[in-house]
Nucleic acid binder design. Structure first.
Length: 573
DNA sequence: GCCGTTTTCGGCCCGACTGTTTTCAGTCG
C-alpha cells in the first residue's frame, strides 16, 4: 500500500474542518491545516520518510503528536483521531461549511438546533422557514442561503488554469484603469504568485477616490452578481462564475496592500508574526510601530522593515522562503530573458500547425539561439507520428534549412513514445543520428505505479534519452498524472544524465513546482520547453518559466539557459 | 497542536463587509 502525500494532507484537512465545526481551539485547527500544507509541499513522499525513520517533527508545523499521526496513516492507512471525530460529527457537515456564507459556527448551530446533517436537510429547513428563527440568522440570511442552494454547481470549488485566468484578467484590468483617479491596477493573489490554477482574481488598485473605482468595477459588463460592496473592497461574480475581489487603497499603502493581497495566507501569517516579534504590526495599510507608519509604499519597504530582502511572489508559499531570505540564500530565479532556446516543439510533420520554416522563423524572432524539432514518433498515430523514413527525411530537411542560415540553430530531435514495455518507439540506429531525444508517455496511462515506474526507468536506462518530457503526464483540470514513483524516476534520470522537462503548455505545466524543486535539490537539471504546436505556441515558454520560478529554479538549474556549445556538452553527458 | 536570542506555558495575523444588531459575531481573504 502506498500512501501519497496528498492522502495524508487530505486526512488532516478533513480533520481540521470537522474540528472547526466542533468548535475546537482555532489554533489547533490551524495546526492541522499547516501540517497538511507542509506535507503537500514535501519533495519526498512522507511515507518514504517514515520508512527510513526520518525525523518527522523537524518539519515545520509538525511536532510529536502530528508525527505520530503521520506514522499511523502511512503504516495503517487510517487515522484513528479522524475516526473518533467522525463518530461525533458527521463528515457531511463539511460540505455545508463549503457553502458561501456558511462557516463552522453556523454549521454547528444548524446541526445542534435543527438536527441538520446534509445539504438536503438544510434546504428543507430553509424552505420551511426554520432557519430564520435561529439567533443571528434572520430572514435575509435564509433567503441568501436558499439562493446559494439552488445554484447547481457549488461555487468556489471551481478553479481555472492560470492561462485561462489571464484571459479574464486582461480586459478587466484595462477596464479598471479607465476609472478616474485610478493609478495602479494589479492582479495579486495566487495569480501573481503564478499558481498553476487560480480560484478567483484578487485585484488591487490605488486611487485617490476609491468610490469611483468601485463604481467602475461593479459596472463592468461581465459582472453577473455583486456579492459584497463597501468603500474599499468589493466582490463580484463574473458571468462565467469566476469570483473577483477588488481592493482599493491609498498610494502610501500600495506596497503593504500588495504584500497582503498577494499572499499566500501562510506567507502573510509568517511575515506578520515576525513583525510582531519586533514590536511592529503589518496590515494592508502599512507597517506600524504603535500608531506610526514606518513603511508601506513599496513591497521592498515592507520586507525591509523586518530585515528581509524583497521576496519574489512565486516563492511566497511559506515553503522556507522567509528563512532563506534571512540567511541571504534566496535563489536568483530564472527569467524568461535567460532562455536561449526551446528544446521541444512540433511542426506540421506530426500534429503541429506550422511548417519547419515557420517555427524556425518564429524562434529566431524570439532571439533564440537554438530550437529542437521534436515531432511525435510513429506510435502516436493520432498525432501522425513519424516513422524512421519520415524522420530521416525531416533530418535532411533540417540540414537544408540550417544551410540557409535561418537565424537559429535547428536541432534534430523527436518526441519518441515510450512503449508499454519501456522500449522506445524508434530504433537506436535512427535515434543515434539525432541531436537529442525527447521521450514521453502517451499511452497506457493506467498501469499500476510499479509497472509505470519500471517502464520509464527502462526507457531512461536505454541511454538514448536526453529529456523526459512532461514527467507527470497530467492535464490540469482534465486528468491526473499517471501513477508513478517519480523520486525513483528522478534518481535514474540523474544517474543517466537525463534532463527533466518543465513543459510550459498551459494544460500541462509538467513538472509541477514541487517536483521541479525536488529536481533542483538533487542536482537534476531541467529543460523548460513550450511544447509548441504552432509558431504562436512558442510563447508558452513563459508559463514554464513561471512554474520553474515557483520551484526555486535559477538559470543555472535550467539547461536551455546555456549557450549551444555548453548545452551540447550537457547533452553529450 | 506547535513553538521559544524575552517564554517549556501562554501565546498563536489583521482588517473589511454583512446581517444582525444598538456593540458585534461570523465569514472571508
Amino acid at each position: 500500500m502506498t500512501v501519497h502525500n496528498a492522502d495524508v494532507a487530505a486526512l488532516f484537512y478533513r480533520l481540521a474542518e470537522l474540528l472547526e465545526i466542533e468548535g475546537a481551539n482555532p489554533f489547533r485547527v490551524r495546526a492541522y491545516r499547516r501540517a497538511a500544507a507542509t506535507i503537500e509541499n514535501l519533495t519526498e513522499p512522507v511515507a518514504h520518510m517514515v520508512d527510513r525513520g526520518a525525523d518527522l517533527d523537524a518539519l515545520p508545523g509538525i511536532g510529536e503528536d502530528l508525527a505520530g499521526k503521520i506514522r499511523e496513516i502511512c503504516e495503517t492507512g487510517r487515522c484513528s483521531a479522524l475516526e473518533e471525530v467522525e463518530a461525533r460529527t458527521p463528515s457531511a457537515l463539511a460540505a455545508l461549511a463549503a457553502i458561501p456564507g456558511l462557516g463552522p459556527k453556523r454549521v454547528q448551530v444548524l446541526h445542534e438546533k435543527l438536527g441538520i446533517n446534509s445539504v438536503e436537510d438544510l434546504r428543507k429547513a430553509a424552505e420551511a422557514g426554520r432557519v430564520r428563527e435561529l439567533p443571528r440568522f434572520g430572514k435575509a440570511f435564509e433567503a441568501k442561503l436558499l439562493a446559494q442552494l439552488v445554484k447547481a454547481a457549488p461555487a468556489g470549488e471551481r478553479s481555472l488554469r492560470l492561462a485561462t485566468a489571464e484571459d479574464f484578467a486582461g480586459p478587466l484590468v484595462a477596464w479598471l484603469k479607465g476609472a478616474p483617479g485610478v493609478r495602479e491596477v494589479v492582479v495579486a493573489g495566487s495569480f501573481r504568485r503564478r499558481k498553476e490554477t487560480v480560484g478567483d482574481l484578487d485585484i488591487l488598485a490605488t486611487a485617490a477616490d476609491g468610490a469611483a473605482a468601485m463604481q467602475r468595477f461593479v459596472a463592468y459588463g461581465e459582472v453577473a452578481e455583486v456579492v459584497a460592496r463597501g468603500p474599499t473592497r468589493a466582490t463580484v461574480l463574473l458571468k462565467g462564475g469566476l469570483q473577483v475581489d477588488l481592493r482599493v487603497v491609498p498610494e502610501e499603502s500600495y506596497g503593504a496592500a500588495l504584500v497582503y493581497f498577494t499572499g499566500s495566507k501562510a506567507h502573510n501569517i509568517a511575515l506578520r508574526r515576525i513583525a510582531q516579534e519586533r514590536g511592529l504590526k503589518i496590515s494592508e495599510y502599512g507597517v506600524f510601530q504603535g500608531m506610526r507608519r514606518i513603511a508601506g509604499r513599496t513591497e521592498a519597504q515592507v520586507y525591509g522593515s523586518v530585515g528581509l530582502p524583497w521576496i519574489a511572489p512565486e516563492l511566497r508559499e511559506d515553503r522556507g522562503e522567509i528563512d532563506a531570505a534571512y540567511a541571504g540564500r534566496l535563489p536568483t530565479l530564472v527569467e524568461l530573458s535567460d532562455i536561449r532556446g526551446d528544446l521541444h516543439v512540433h511542426t506540421r510533420a506530426s500534429d503541429g500547425g506550422s511548417s519547419l520554416e515557420e517555427m524556425a522563423a518564429a524562434a529566431a524572432a524570439l532571439g533564440y539561439e537554438y530550437m529542437a524539432v521534436a515531432d511525435h514518433s510513429r506510435h502516436a498515430t493520432a498525432a501522425h507520428g513519424l516513422d524512421t523514413a519520415r524522420l530521416a527525411a525531416q533530418m535532411d530537411e533540417i540540414d537544408r534549412l540550417n544551410a540557409r542560415k535561418p537565424g537559429v540553430r535547428v536541432l534534430k530531435s523527436c518526441e519518441v513514445d515510450i512503449l508499454k514495455d519501456g522500449r522506445l518507439d524508434l530504433s537506436d540506429a535512427i535515434l543515434k543520428r539525432l541531436d537529442l531525444v525527447v521521450a514521453a508517455i502517451h499511452s497506457d496511462f493506467d498501469l499500476p505505479a510499479e509497472d509505470q515506474t519500471a517502464r520509464i526507468v527502462r526507457a531512461l536506462e536505454s541511454g538514448r534519452v536526453h529529456i523526459l518530457a512532461h514527467p507527470l503526464g497530467r492535464l490540469i483540470g482534465e486528468r491526473p498524472g499517471y501513477a508513478v514513483d517519480l523520486p525513483k524516476v528522478m534518481a535514474v534520470a540523474k544517474a543517466m544524465g537525463c534532463l527533466l522537462e518543465m513543459n510550459g503548455h498551459p494544460a500541462r505545466l509538467d513538472l509541477d513546482d514541487v517536483h521541479a524543486r525536488a529536481a533542483k535539490e538533487m542536482g537534476l537539471m531541467v529543460s523548460i520547453a513550450s511544447d509548441a504546436h504552432s509558431a504562436m505556441g512558442l510563447s508558452a515558454m513563459r508559463h514554464g518559466v513561471d512554474q520553474a520560478r515557483r520551484g526555486w529554479l535559477t538559470a543555472a538549474d535550467v539547461a536551455n539557459t546555456r549557450r549551444w556549445p555548453e548545452l551540447e556538452r550537457i547533452l553529450a553527458r
